[in-house]
Design a protein around this nucleic acid. Sequence first.
RNA 1: GUGCGUGUAGCUCAGGUUGGUUAGAGCACUGGGUUGUGGUCCCAGGGGUCGCCGGUUCAAAUCCGGUCACGCACCCCA
Length: 420
Amino acid sequence: MKVKSIRGFHDILPENIKRWHLIEDAAKYIFELYGFSEIRIPVLEFTDVFARSLGTTTDIVEKEMYTFTDRDGSSLTLRPEGTAGVVRAYIEDSMHAKSSISKLYYTGMMFRHERPQKGRFRGFYQIGAELIGPEEPASDAELVAMLWRFFEEIDLTQFLELEISSLGDQNCRPQYKEKLVGYFSPQKNELCEDCQRRLETNPLRILDCKQKRCKEIAADAPSMLDNLCEDCENHFDSVKENLDSVGIPYKINPKIVRGLDYYTRTVFEITTDQLGSQNAVAAGGRYDGLVNELGGPATAAVGFAMGIERIILLQEIALPEGFGKDVNVFIAHLGDEARQAAFTLAFNLRNKGISVETDYATKSLKSQMKRADKLGASYTFIIGEDELKKAVIKVRDMKESSEEDIKLEDIINSSDKFKS
RNA sequence: GUGCGUGUAGCUCAGGUUGGUUAGAGCACUGGGUUGUGGUCCCAGGGGUCGCCGGUUCAAAUCCGGUCACGCACCCCA
């Protein structure tokens, strides 16, 4: 019986790992420039943490969580997203008492029991950032600017669009919801089945429906942006001004609806038209009520998460040829004595920071050269009987196809020149 | 969870509709041509339970049923 991975889970193979490193390194670099520190939190939490955070009627909580009962009877869940756990840690570790502003980022695997599709997996990686404490619009703008800068850094903005909106707060959203229900109710029978249900559970979602008729009806629906209270409107205006001042290109899309209940005020999405129906590459927003909801002090916060697999797919479009291995030196050897010499030389060169590969067995020079070529070695060192006798190494520049004999001691002493 | 499509070598795919001896190609891999020289070329070699289970048949990669996996769309989202 052959073993296999679980549906919707996948391996990230060495031939692809450079793309991952590129993205992870860029995120770390940019986020730390903006003052964020990494936090590592458990993959597993009490189910309650997610149920209370995301909202009990959301799809994720209703049907997508990997939930099971622990030996002591408590219900545990594999995290479907990162924010809830970070906020739990923020509260549990009393971070509010250590500083009025916490800037945290995380990366790791998330789990959702969905039907796999292109760019959609059951086990997938996210990188996210949370800015907890400030409620001022400059914090929203800084976070969005950072996110866009990240995508500039990895050179993918050509495929992307940044959209922002505001969902209002406890003061204006309930009124707006009623207004929406009032607008849709007379036309209820023309809405699709899902939207008729949404009218009861979450009328905002109707705005995001892809059905033709629903779209037509929704086109004339009242907009949240026209119904913001004064505070929310000022907040949103200020976010936009801040983004304008640093030239971040955004579009206003009043129909943005987030799938999680905890969002308030500013919401944003970075989307692409390159990935079929999985068009969201990153998304986030403000969630001023969540910390308090989970039992912490009333604390404002903004955050986002991005799907690494989706970014990888874009990266593959942008740079299909990928990245080669960068071996500096390959050492080819002929004969037992030479193999021994190659082993010690490889050890010594690696100690000097040179990446070295060599064959373990004694093979023909030709096959060793082939391997050197395949590994993309910049130089190949050849050690045979002649070289051993003269205490030299034959150094072949693979690009130039030129060779010269260099004394063994000179190679060690000036090893830096082989680093390219 | 629903619908449609696809599963043949490590990868990309022929063959299948008209069932019939040893299931093919390209790329990749290994070795050789060049007894100490890569990237081009030539030659040779290794590698396959034809996704899995069952049915029809003298005979199934091929037809039928089921199942699993993947893909696309719905849904949802990162």
